[in-house]
Every structure is written in structure tokens, then in C-alpha cells.
Design a protein around this nucleic acid. Structure first.
Lengths: 106, 106
DNA sequence: TTTTATTATCGTATTTTTACGATAAATAAT
DNA sequence: ATTATTTATCGTAAAAATACGATAATAAAA
């Protein structure tokens, strides 16, 4: 979608859609579940966890970083990935807000 | 992504990704917010609410129907759209589950 | 300094998504 | 019966996402 078209929707609609897009691929969900399971910042071995090439995983990590869900910190030759708690909370709040707005119909 | 690649991830990972994909476009978020605001099944006027052509809106509605979030019922020449409460709850549960799995790190 | 290890980026092919106009299909209205 | 209304689908063009190998960039290790 062209950048200009973003103006056709509200900030909230765009942000929800953008965050959803970030988790709209099983590889990225898998990455997040792995980080959560490890319960810490993870350096390195994410590629080994996924059935995808190193460059593809790097691209997925980039997408998660783009929306702010992940932050990467360089530690020597490796990079440590962490979930950004603020953005994670923002996402949780937006999804919960959307979910709970609907209370039933008909 | 090829269908075969779906096997590389868990059912949960695929379902979360698929539901997220369905709301990964501001137009579709907008449609859902509109249906929620109306608090009932809506016949017709969804197209008028969006700055997109009728065929494009129809495509977005189809995507929401694909994952089960929406159900459409034909009423004469119009179609009534409703949020499917079961799928909506499923989505809410999966998103909440993912969100709450992370309690913090480092 | 050279080699090794790790991650990012580039180039590219393929697939998918998005958008719209045109048209079909179905029903209601005249 | 004809016309109008509404929605879905088709065809298609353009854009975006996905995947991978090759290569660059960086820092550690030897």
C-alpha cells in the first residue's frame, strides 16, 4: 500500500495493523515464543531454532525490529535480541482493546 | 510461503500468524471497528465507510471471512456481516496468551 | 596479521497482496 | 418483463513479502 494511503485511516488503525503485520508470519511468532521461553535476551542461536536460512531469519528479525517489538544490541561479533517491554505492552494493550471492544451482537 | 512450509511451524504459530495477517491491514481493522461500533450485524454500508472501491472492500471482507473472524449472511440483495464470537474469542485468547507469556527479561 | 565466527545487506527470483474497473449474479422494485 | 441495487468475482497491473545464496562488515581468536 502506498504511503499516502496511510492517511486514510486513523493512527490507531494503522498501528494495530502494523503490529499485527509484524506477527503475521509463523517464523516471527516462533522467534518471539523462543525469546519468551528463554526468558532473557538471546545472543546468536535464533537461526539454529528455525528451519530457514540465516539471511531469511535476519530479515524476519529486522521486521520485528522495525515495529519496535524487538531491540538488538551488538555484543562483540554477536547480536543480542530482546523483546522491548514498552512496545510489547503497547501491542498487548491495543490487541486487548480491540478484542474487548466487541461484546457481542444479534 | 508455500503450503508445505506450514509444517515447519506449530499449529499455534500458524494460527496466530494467520489471524494476525487478517488484521494486518488498516482497512480490515477499520471494518472490524465499524462492526463493533454498530454493535450489530451490518448489512450493506461498509463500502461507504471506507476510502476504497467496492471490489477492494469485498476482497478485504473475504480475507476476514477466510480466517473465520467474519461471517456473512445473504439477505435478499444485501449481505449482512457479523463478527463470529467464537473465532473472536479464539483470537483474543491466542493474542492474550502470547502477550502474557512474556513477563520481562534482563 | 590472518583466520574464524557472526550478523547484516545485496541481488534476485518467486509468490502474495493490494487495488481497481469491468462484469456477472442475485434479488428487489417498477 | 425490465430496470435498478447490491455484492461477488474476474482480469490485471503494481507493489510488497518471502526466501536464498553470495558477499560485506565487524569483532574475536589464533
Amino acid at each position: 500500500m502506498a504511503v499516502a494511503k496511510k492517511n486514510l485511516f486513523t493512527e490507531e488503525e494503522n498501528r494495530i495493523a502494523d503490529l499485527a503485520k509484524a506477527i503475521a508470519h509463523p517464523a516471527r511468532v516462533s522467534i518471539l515464543l523462543y525469546l519468551i521461553k528463554k526468558n532473557s535476551c538471546v545472543c546468536g542461536d535464533i537461526v539454529d531454532e528455525l528451519p530457514l536460512s540465516q539471511s531469511t531469519v535476519s530479515q524476519h528479525l529486522k521486521e520485528l525490529k522495525r515495529v519496535g517489538i524487538l531491540q538488538g544490541e551488538i555484543e562483540g561479533t554477536k547480536t543480542c535480541y530482546c523483546i522491548n517491554p514498552e512496545v510489547w505492552m503497547e501491542m498487548g494493550g491495543l490487541f486487548k482493546g480491540l478484542t474487548e471492544k466487541f461484546t457481542g451482537c444479534c
